[in-house]
Amino acid sequence: MTTTNTTTTTQFPPPKVLTYPSSTPPILITQGAEGRLYKTTYLSPSIPCALKYRPPKPYRHPILDARLTKARLSAEAKVLERCWREGIPVPAVYAVDTSAGWMAIEWIDGPPVRAGINEWLGDPPEVEQDGGHQQDKKKENADEDEGEAPMVDLMRRIGLAVGRLHNLAGVVHGDLTTSNMMLRPPLDGGDAAQGKAGKALEGEVVLIDFGLATQSQSDEDRAVDLYVLERAFLSTHPRAERLFGEVLEAYRGSFKKAASVLVKLEDVRMRGRKKSMIG
């Protein structure tokens, strides 16, 4: 079934490529300052993809505008490829059209970490739901710490993911938030976690949105990356504040030089994200 669609639900015109026929109409997912994200399909109806579109900015000189769009798209694509070659889970790049300002990348299933955490916070894990004979099999000392286990585990997975990004790929993300991390369900046995406490927090942590990423090995840049995540996390999930330390602990253990990044993080906390340019 082929339909020609014009995404009438959006107030902005979609990129030209999305006006050509597709099996399902593209859906506008988010709209940021720099661009828009559509969910659509690549090549065949069975391959979902995310199409990132950076529309021309009318307030910029057209030549400068084209050059910036091109440079940013290709920088993002290169960073994603670099991560892929190192085996760091990020979306694959399917196609890039720098002159038209779009990039088609792999669609990552699953909720953002933000949603997972919020679900978990708003809906604390119940030890048993089916009651009766399947009563509490948990150890007697099932104290508060144990109830938090899935959350602690997620925090560690996040710390590890960021550590691997920094260390193996030599990439700093530039915009680490719990919205820019997905919880991708396992390929098979997706319902293995059914009914288990902390199900909302299961899945592989996949980093997304590398629009502000840069290649850097410096402690300073890495510390700022962590600082941005810390600030974002504390403001998005104030109730989970005391668990953030687990992210940093896992980061510390993820590569040799992580400790010096964490020392640097202390400095960054004192002065904020921007380095003073005085002196």
Partner: peptide
């Protein structure tokens, strides 16, 4: 990667990326 099927899947993605990033 140990799993050969998974390896092939990942290789396909890397191939697609190589093509998508031609000349960048």
């Amino acid at each position: 990667l140990k799993d050969e099927d998974l390896k092939k899947k990942q290789m396909e993605k890397l191939v697609l990326m190589g093509m998508a990033l031609r000349g960048m």
